[in-house]
């Protein structure tokens, strides 16, 4: 006898986004979209999620592919980590994204986990939420009837919660082209078993000809209930020459935007995460500055 770990569900594989959205509406909150399944299937096996229906997006062509243009990249929600890390376009236009994708989990997980699933899930320890925040990405979504563009700053709302509505499908992630003289870096303290971020920091730094910081994006994952921009830190960088003490002082405020308290779990205490947020912010900013030169 085979033990069934998940609760029963219906399974469907629509061909279009419109059909996927129609099915979401039909089940009125009872259905879940299935991308790579590498967050959802483990949750279902633990019965922490028991959707009545699974709408598998693997047959929806519109959600695939990476397009590169003068304005930046348009990345289909079903693009896997492996596709991101091995794409020449992504390596060229957004090396931060390729590098962060290569740091996720292991080869098998990267073959199936998708960028769309990673950001839609808004797992507090996931890597890509910090990366898309630091890149000022735009989340393109669609329902049966209409689409919208959600600036990433308004996308992550809470622990496992995003701005996506019940019948809305995330279709593409648009990553604008970075200004010249921009350096990027993603550095995390990773959980030794899963490689999820205990704390992860993405930094995007643009320097002027005189070495003064013109623009800074710093985003934090792992530390709080959901990924956030460290705007206080960013403001302390812009307009200054980024000497080590300037970076260190700015990094000290990197936890300021964490909503509520720092995460506390078997992997790390809240105090440790708070301390590591500063340490990893300093390292990520320093590495981004070095790349920008």
């Amino acid at each position: 006898m085979v033990t069934m770990t998940s609760a029963p569900f219906e399974y469907m594989r629509p061909k279009t986004v419109a059909e996927a959205s129609r099915l979401l509406s039909k089940y009125g909150g009872g259905a879940k979209l299935l991308a790579g399944g590498h967050s959802l299937v483990p949750l279902m096996k633990l019965r922490l999620a028991s959707p009545q229906a699974l709408i598998d997006l693997s047959g929806v062509g519109e959600l695939k592919g990476i397009n590169s243009s003068a304005s930046g990249l348009s990345i289909g929600a079903m693009t896997t980590y492996h596709e991101l890390e091995s794409s020449v376009e992504v390596q060229r236009a957004a090396p931060l994204l390729a590098d962060a994708a290569s740091q996720v989990a292991d080869a098998q997980v990267r073959n199936f986990g998708t960028i769309g699933g990673a950001v839609s899930h808004s797992d507090p320890s996931a890597d890509l939420p910090a990366v898309v925040l630091a890149l000022d990405a735009v989340m393109k979504t669609a329902t049966q009837r209409a689409g919208r563009d959600i600036p990433v700053e308004r996308f992550f709302k809470d622990f496992l919660t995003t701005a996506l509505r019940q019948n809305e499908v995330l279709t593409r992630i648009e990553v604008p082209k970075l200004p010249a003289n921009t350096g990027t870096s993603y550095i995390k303290q990773s959980n030794k078993a899963s490689h999820y971020a205990v704390v992860g920091v993405a930094a995007v730094i643009t320097l002027g000809a005189d070495g003064v910081c013109e623009r800074a994006r710093v985003a934090i994952t792992g530390a709080g209930p959901y990924a956030v921009r460290a705007k206080r830190t960013e403001r302390m960088l812009v307009g200054k020459k980024l000497a080590p003490n300037v970076i260190r002082n700015a990094a000290k405020r990197a936890g300021a935007e964490i909503s509520g308290s720092f995460n506390e779990d078997v992997h790390a205490s809240a105090g440790y995460r708070e301390a590591m947020t500063q340490v990893f912010a300093e390292r990520a900013i320093t590495a981004a500055v070095a790349n920008a030169r």
Binding site: H38, K45, H82, N111
Partner: peptide, 25 residues
């Protein structure tokens, strides 16, 4: 629980932990 990799097979040419996908997929 998707961690150990003992269940790894190739699905459509890609290595996957087969305890982390449903057969219907």
């Amino acid at each position: 629980t998707s961690n150990c990799g003992a269940c790894t097979v190739h699905l459509n040419g890609k290595a996957v932990k087969s305890c982390t996908v449903f057969a219907v997929q």
